[in-house]
Design a binder for these strands. Structure first.
Lengths: 111, 111
DNA sequence: ACAATTTATGTCAGATATGACATATTGTCA
DNA sequence: TGACAATATGTCATATCTGACATAAATTGT
C-alpha cells in the first residue's frame, strides 16, 4: 500500500496495519504469529499451484484433510514444525523457505 | 570446502558430505533436520555474541537452562517452534531468520 | 590442583500437538 | 435447483514437547 492510499483511508477513520499491530502483541509474539501465518498462506498457495486437494496433500505428508485445513487457516493448534514439514513435503527448497520467512505480510484495513 | 581438499580426503578413505547424507534420509527429513541443526547453531552463536549464559537466555525466553542446552545441542526433544521463538526473543529480525534458514550447512568428514 | 561457573544429560508430570473421525459449510457445475 | 466435491470445524485418545529438577561433565580462573 502506498502512502497516499494510507492517508486517504486514515482520513476516513480506517486503521491501517498488520493484524499483529491491532492485537497489540510483543515483538516476539508478533514475529512468531506473523511467521506462522505466512507459512499457512504459503502452504495453501503451493498446494493450489500444484492442483492438489487437501486430502491429497494430507496423504503426502501423512496427515489428515482436517489437519491440512487447520494448517491453512492458521488454527492455533498447529505447530510451525508441521507447517515446515508440509512445505518441504511439497518439495520447496530451503531457499524458497528462507524467502517466505523473510517476506513481509499483507496489511489490513479496519474501520 | 574446495574440490582439491575433497579429493585429497576421499583418496585417503574419508567420506565427505553433510550429516544427512551419511544418515541416508529422504529429502524432506533431511531438509527438516538440517533446518533444526542450523537453528540450534544459530541460537548458540547469537547467545554467545550477546555474552549471555544459558541460564540468562532461559529467563528471557521463559524456559530453563537444561532446555536451552538441549536446544543448542539439537536434542530430538526440542521443536522448531521453540527454537524460532527463542531466536525471536534474542531479537533477531525475520530477515536474519530467513538468511539462517536459506543458508547451507557445514560439511563433515568421516573415516 | 581446586573451587566456582557454565553447560550437558536424564527423568518426569503436566501441557500442547497430532491424526482420525464425524459432521457442517462452502464451492462447482449441470 | 440439487448432487457432488472440497474445505472447514469440533472433539478426542494418544503422542510429543515442555519447564523443572537433580546431577554429571566440562570450562574457566587462580
Amino acid at each position: 500500500m502506498n502512502k497516499a492510499k494510507r492517508k486517504r483511508l486514515e482520513s476516513k477513520g480506517w486503521k491501517v496495519g498488520t493484524v499483529e499491530e491491532f492485537l497489540d502483541l510483543s515483538p516476539e509474539e508478533s514475529a512468531y504469529i506473523e511467521l506462522k501465518l505466512k507459512l499457512s498462506e504459503s502452504l495453501k498457495r503451493y498446494r493450489e499451484e500444484r492442483n492438489l486437494t487437501q486430502t491429497q496433500l494430507a496423504q503426502i505428508v501423512g496427515s489428515s484433510q482436517s489437519r491440512v485445513a487447520k494448517m491453512e487457516v492458521g488454527d492455533p493448534s498447529v505447530s510451525i514444525d508441521l507447517l515446515i514439514r508440509s512445505l518441504f513435503a511439497l518439495g520447496i527448497s530451503k531457499r524458497e523457505m528462507g524467502r517466505i520467512i523473510a517476506s513481509p505480510r499483507q496489511r489490513v484495513e479496519l474501520k
